[in-house]
Design a protein around this nucleic acid. Structure first.
Length: 201
DNA sequence: CGCTTTTGACCGGCGC
DNA sequence: GCGCCGGTCAAAAGCG
């Protein structure tokens, strides 16, 4: 449970969001470790194919190890505060427990994506609950923090709109879902059919 | 009524 | 040591 690989290269909404998915959307896959990931969707739209597509994306992202992917300075995952929740578990009072001295801090791999979209959050089929929002330095847009609501699933994501380009939304995923998609992926398929993914490096 | 969002407070890490 | 900053918590409010 320490190797986190699954990720989905698109934004997702909070479960109650009724915001329509942008009909015109392009996505920049920003991954320092990705191969030449040029993805175009000329496949069929079956669900199995969709999962294959995701696997392909995941494979190209190569996030299945203790790696970190930096997309944008504003979402640098090297920030100290975002530790492994398995280690930084919370006490009954809800406060963070210190990691024992000498224990090496293990960071979850993170994958971040830039998405050109009218809306901040798109439907990826999972249910998310917002647990925080923070103003970000040098950015007029706040950063939102979401956690997967599935019991036992520790996946988190951050969503932030770029100040310098209001059309770009940066989503950072942390962790791997330990359960199947909970909602219809119709929206996501719709997104998949229209998005273009390419590596930044 | 249960779930989600909002938002101020709190905490730890880091730089100076 | 102090202040800044990012991340998280949790109570209150909102919503279906």
């Amino acid at each position: 449970m320490e190797n986190y690989a699954t990720l989905f290269p698109y934004n997702s909404p909070s479960s109650t969001s009724t915001t329509p998915v942008s009909s015109h959307l392009s996505l920049n896959l920003m991954n320092d470790y990705s191969h030449d990931a040029a993805y175009s969707n000329d496949n069929n739209n079956s669900y199995d194919q969709l999962e294959d597509d995701l696997g392909f994306i995941e494979e190209n992202l190569n996030c299945n190890s203790d790696q970190e992917i930096v997309v944008d300075p504003t979402v640098s995952p090297t920030s100290s505060g975002l530790g492994n929740s398995d280690l930084n578990s919370t006490s009954g009072s809800g406060k963070m427990i210190n990691i024992k001295k000498g224990e090496k801090k293990i960071k979850k791999p993170k994958c971040a994506f830039q998405t050109r979209s009218q809306v901040d959050i798109l439907d990826d089929g999972y249910r998310w609950r917002k647990y925080g929002q923070k103003a970000v330095k040098n950015n007029k847009f706040p950063r939102s923090y979401y956690r997967c609501t599935h019991h036992g699933c520790n996946v988190k994501k951050q969503v932030q709109r770029l100040s310098k380009d209001e059309g770009v939304v940066v989503t950072t995923y942390e962790g791997t879902h330990s359960h199947p998609i909970e909602k219809s992926t119709d929206n996501f398929e719709h997104i998949l059919t229209q998005m273009q993914i390419y590596s930044s490096c």
